[in-house]
Amino acid sequence: METQEMDAKMTGKKEMARPFEEEGIIRVDNLNLYAGKTHILKNVNIEIPKNKLTVILGPSGCGKTTLLKCMNRLTDLTPDIKVNGNIYIGDQPVFGSKTDIVALRRKMGLLSQRPFPLPMNIYNNIAYGLKLRGKYNRAELNDLVEYYLRQVNLWDEVKDRLRSPAVRLSIGQQQRLCLARGLAVNPDIILADEPTSALDPVSSEAIEKQFAALSKDFTLVMVTHVLRQARRIADYVIFMYLGEVIEMRPAQEFFEDPREEQTKKYLSGAFN
């Protein structure tokens, strides 16, 4: 009996966390994810506001990266993953046999933990995504590459060596290149998975500044475990613990007046 009650509690639908008035763009609807027999995401119900910077916060292993990767279904790459529930980008479901995942992924740029430049030169790292999605002549392409490199303040550093392999850049430059590459495909949403964790403080700050500026025009979802970073740039904070969303609040409220017990513990540094 007790276990049944527990199960019911576990699978029971939670209320959707939606602590904002603006238009939402990503809606996670009762998402459960299993890798083999491990229950990694448990009844996740959140909505993420448009053109804001939302940070997913939590100790490592809480499922925050997995949640991020669900949003553009990179979970497809891992065998043995089972998903219940769904995520909606606008009104389009992410999971489902009718979804054109390639078209949907175009709405989302991705920035990973370490920079992974494509095995091409600097120029083509930006141009590749553009060429995949549309036909441009040389001049248009040159213009766009320059524009996006300027967007991330990389143009002046690389304009003389656009044809040299991207891996020759420093890690910080590489990460900015990756951001430009993500922007160049003209997404509405940018997903970032601890984008500064491999960077030196100066490059980190540059990326953070970029993010703050970009949140006017893009919806940013960033995973991090660095509290101070979240404090500095987040508009909203989603706090996850052991696969569950504990709370989602506007950043200021979250840090000054945490509601849940686990959040308080986390903020006081108990998990580190």
């Binding site: 766009l144 524009y147 300027r150 003209n186 025009d217």
Partner: peptide, 22 residues
């Protein structure tokens, strides 16, 4: 180019958009 606004550039890219699957 750098004077161009983000919105303009985004509109430009949008105009060139091909379908994802052909």
């Amino acid at each position: 180019m750098e004077q161009r606004s983000l919105a303009d550039v985004r509109a430009l890219v949008k105009r060139h958009e091909k379908p994802a699957r052909t």
